[in-house]
Design a protein around this nucleic acid. Structure first.
Lengths: 323, 323
DNA sequence: TCAAAAGTGTTATCCTTACACCCATGT
DNA sequence: ACATGGGTGTAAGGATAACACTTTTGA
């Protein structure tokens, strides 16, 4: 196995999970503090023999590292390029890492999850993605930094793309493009990972506006998860995976807003839920609302068998920062 | 390495490509006849050392096996479960296969591609997915076979799902659910792969209605590609990856119909293309139309920088079999 | 002159968006 | 009584789906 012709390389496969939960209107990802890797990381581990499926392996790792039992799981993406840290075994042995990333959704009775894991607000990672109170105050700053990076040559295209993604112009904000926005910041050298991956020193001037970074490429993976989830709630009823069995329509809307990062129009949201027949009344009411008690609802599992593509085509309320 | 605690297993990673092209209004996938594996297969090969990225590895394999140079490539899904054939190395050594599948789109001057590869019409694999001339004649037969498989217990749910996916009732046909339809047929034992994977003999009664099968799980991978592509043309201008530089609007529509498998309304299709500003006139005309000459168009690359999500929200023409 | 395909104008309908307003409860 | 959030009716605008029709070429 010394050298020579291209040979099958020894490949280490990592299974990585983005476990999402929403509590009190805030979205969280599950993280672990590993002694080995520096910084905060997503739960993950190598694919080992004996697991029948990839998903089974993933569930086992997450449970071992965080005691969190997963319900809904879907595959996100397989990272194997520069974006995944090489983890070279040294000694010239070709030894690359491929990581298969998954998105998991859990309904969180928050108290229940006091473990060696932490729930990290995902807007700590991507502050600019939270526009529920209007465009994020740091957005203008980011936008300017990005424009400043425009190399003369690709000037026009770059500027247009900055405007398209970070939408300070008249173009509407597209909340689904979280990944593309992160990648643009990465390419512009505006997030720490960009330096870390090239083994350059991180600039002394602290970037307060570009969010918390994670170990390896875990922040990129999280951005992938957010993009996927924001898109998916529009055509599949995955939102309900994050809800307790009974909930009020307001709680449902708060959850949708937490994920999308944009404020939603109350009436339209309700009509949408209603006409899609996504929920039914339980008969109970929630009295801890601070105002009129709200009817309790539950998800109608049957919609999965009835409607072709049930989901909430959430649309921003113009009121604040939708554009 | 004999036995004992779960250890990192030796994993073989395959890169597999679904290369799609459209010619004369028919959609094709690129296939190879491998001497080793039985039957028709997609181009694929193991991930080897020396390739910088997964995509680079994929491109190399496809080019080596088919002489086809890829342009547009996107990752589809990573298969590692029962769905991917185990390829056990025998001798009790744990040796599973994970295959990372990609979708590639090529613009095909058909004549140019006379190589050791073959272009297989994708409706040979999935006859029921072609509804351009109305619901496929064999659909009713398939539908009945599926209902006959309903176990008494899961009866209602199964029947409803059959109706939802194979839409003989009043539910509309959802062309994007190609993968789910294939998987339902697989689970019902109505495609040959279901028996092959369990190493059971394929029933003697030939299934003329369930299409041609491919090696390993390649037909499932192709179904994944079709689902993805049918969804994606609606919000990203990937359709143009399949077109020659200059084309007429009719050719564009024929291509969209070939992919979607449903007839489109001419007028509305044109308005959509126009109002989305997806194309511009080249000035030339095509005179080989058989009727009035058509204006030649080209894709406006700029839309990628202008519009938030350009695509063709193609909608079936009611005329034939849309419902 | 006819067939065949390109290309256009117009209308009814539905969905989306936003407005304003009323209801039921705790303090 | 009033603050707070729950819940509803309705109208304007735009996108969609379908209609029928005209234009330009080759045979």
């Amino acid at each position: 196995m010394a050298d020579g012709a291209p040979e099958e390389s020894r490949v280490r496969i990592d299974l990585t999970a983005v476990v999402v939960a929403v509590d009190a209107g805030q979205p969280y990802v599950l993280t672990v503090d590993t002694a080995e890797a520096p910084g905060i990381a997503l739960p993950s581990g190598p694919l080992v023999a004996g697991q029948r499926t990839l998903q089974a392996g993933l569930r086992a790792w997450v449970e071992a590292q965080t005691k969190c039992r997963l319900e809904y799981v879907e595959q996100l993406y397989t990272f194997g390029d520069r974006t995944s840290n090489p983890l070279d075994g040294g000694e010239g042995v070709t030894h690359r890492a491929v990581s298969i990333a998954y998105l998991a959704l859990v309904s969180m009775p928050m108290e229940q999850l006091e473990m060696q894991a932490h729930w990290l607000s995902w807007y700590a990672l991507f502050p600019w993605e939270d526009r529920r109170e209007g465009p994020h105050p740091l957005l203008g700053e980011l936008h300017d930094d990005l424009l400043a990076k425009a190399r003369p040559a690709a000037n026009r295209a770059w500027r247009q793309r900055v405007d398209l993604l970070f939408g300070t112009g008249q173009l509407p904000w597209d909340e689904e493009r979280t990944l593309e926005r992160y990648e643009m910041l990465y390419n512009a050298g505006l997030v720490d990972e960009a330096f870390r991956d090239r083994e350059e020193p991180i600039p002394a001037t602290p970037r307060t506006n570009s969010g918390v970074s994670l170990a390896a490429d875990h922040r990129r993976i999280t951005a992938t998860a957010i993009s996927r989830l924001r898109a998916k709630i529009k055509y599949r009823p995955v939102l309900f995976e994050l809800m307790p069995p009974d909930f009020t329509l307001s709680q449902l809307q708060k959850t949708a807003e937490a994920l999308s990062g944009i404020p939603l129009h109350k009436q339209n949201f309700r009509r949408l839920v209603e006409q899609q027949n996504l929920v039914e009344e339980t008969g109970g009411v929630a009295t801890d609302t601070g105002g009129r008690p709200a009817k309790l609802m539950r998800f109608r599992e049957d919609v999965l068998l009835e409607r072709p593509r049930p989901g909430l085509r959430v649309s921003a309320s113009r009121r604040m920062g939708a554009v």
